[in-house]
């Protein structure tokens, strides 16, 4: 074995070796100091980690106490809140707080939105994941990203100024503010969400499964629809749940395009008010800070929060399960 000749230049050796020996022999940095700093930093990190728990706690606390003040009011009863479909908090004489009117409006808009976003989103995801040639992918992905990044107030404008006139042109029964227009806009808004989450789920399905099916002579359609989609089903369901939660909580579109008349109707041509729409109405009007109608905003928010939390929680749990299955 030959010795490494770069070491063979004698001029530097004694010199540099001695010097570096001295440096390396010097006392090292105080470990105590390093440890102390480490502890402080760790404490800061933990504090910021706990901050997110604090936010959740604060949301629940705030909504709960204000909702309690709402129910304490003489004008409100549980039976009225949970049993009535008349939401009429502002008119003096005939106040009624039947949350079902708002829930119904929310459901209607969400249903319309989802009947657009779920099928289109899923099919686009299948296309992107299983079919699309690279060129199409390179166009479609940025388009979806742009659609996802557009502020919701812009979709509201689109609904009010473009979708509604088109609907009215198609059928004269549509009123200026209507559930269909808002629902369609919310659907467009949710489409990228569904698509990218569902595509993630499809991509997570192991290659081997596809190859196995192709090896048996399956067509692309067979592989996508009969093999990949069932394998990714829980991931897709989670994508759907998260998209529904997003639609339920969507605010500006419905505030602009759905109207402000709370009514329990299934007619998409009518105007409806959603839970979020009511909150915007309260915030943009001049309402005294302490009346029952002010607190009703919190009761509605609490209902909304419980609904979306349940959806996202289940969605996230399903997604986590799904990921564990394939990773």
């Amino acid at each position: 074995m030959s010795s490494a000749n770069s070491l063979a230049t004698p001029t530097w050796r004694g010199d540099l070796d001695d010097r570096v020996g001295k440096y390396l022999g010097r006392s090292h940095r105080s470990l105590k100091l390093v440890r102390g700093r480490e502890t402080v930093i760790y404490a800061i990190l933990i504090a910021s980690g706990l901050f997110s728990l604090l936010i959740t706690g604060a949301i629940i606390y705030v909504l709960a106490i204000e909702t309690v003040s709402f129910f304490k009011s003489d004008e409100v009863t549980f039976a009225n809140f949970f049993g009535s479909t008349t939401w009429n908090p502002l008119l003096g004489g005939t106040k009624s707080f039947g949350i079902w009117a708002l829930i119904c409006g929310t459901m209607l808009v969400t249903a319309i939105a989802m009947s657009i976003a779920l099928p289109l989103g899923l099919i686009t995801a299948i296309y992107l994941s299983e079919y699309a040639p690279r060129g199409v992918r390179n166009v479609l992905k940025p388009v979806l990203e742009v659609l996802a990044g557009v502020p919701t107030v812009v979709y509201g404008f689109f609904a009010l100024m473009t979708i509604t006139p088109i609907l009215q042109w198609l059928h004269s029964g549509f009123s200026v503010y209507n559930a269909a227009s808002a629902g369609i806009a919310v659907g467009i808004l949710c489409l990228p969400t569904v698509c990218s989450l569902a595509e993630d789920a499809l991509q997570a399905v192991p290659r081997g499964l596809r190859e196995g099916a192709y090896g048996l002579g399956a067509t692309r359609f067979d592989v996508s629809v009969k093999v990949v989609v069932p394998a990714a089903l829980s991931g897709i369901i989670s994508a759907f749940l998260l998209a529904i939660a997003r639609a339920v909580g969507e605010t500006m579109i419905v505030a602009l395009a759905a109207g402000s008349l709370a009514q329990a109707t299934l007619d998409p041509r009518q105007q409806v008010q959603t839970m979020t729409g009511f909150m915007v109405q309260m915030a943009s009007g001049d309402v005294s800070n302490y009346g029952t109608e002010y607190y009703s905003m919190y009761a509605v928010a609490f209902t909304l929060f419980v609904m979306t939390l349940a959806l996202t929680m289940v969605g996230n749990l399903v997604r986590r399960r799904f990921r564990e299955a394939y990773e």
């Binding site: 770069s6 070491l7 540099l16 070796d17 010097r19 570096v20 440096y23 390396l24 010097r26 090292h28």
Partner: peptide, 19 residues
């Protein structure tokens, strides 16, 4: 990380280790 070295001392250490 471990030592307080001046710039030239650090250069010495680096050269030494690389050699």
């Amino acid at each position: 990380l471990h030592m307080k070295l001046s710039r030239t001392e650090l250069q010495d250490v680096v050269e030494w280790a690389l050699r």
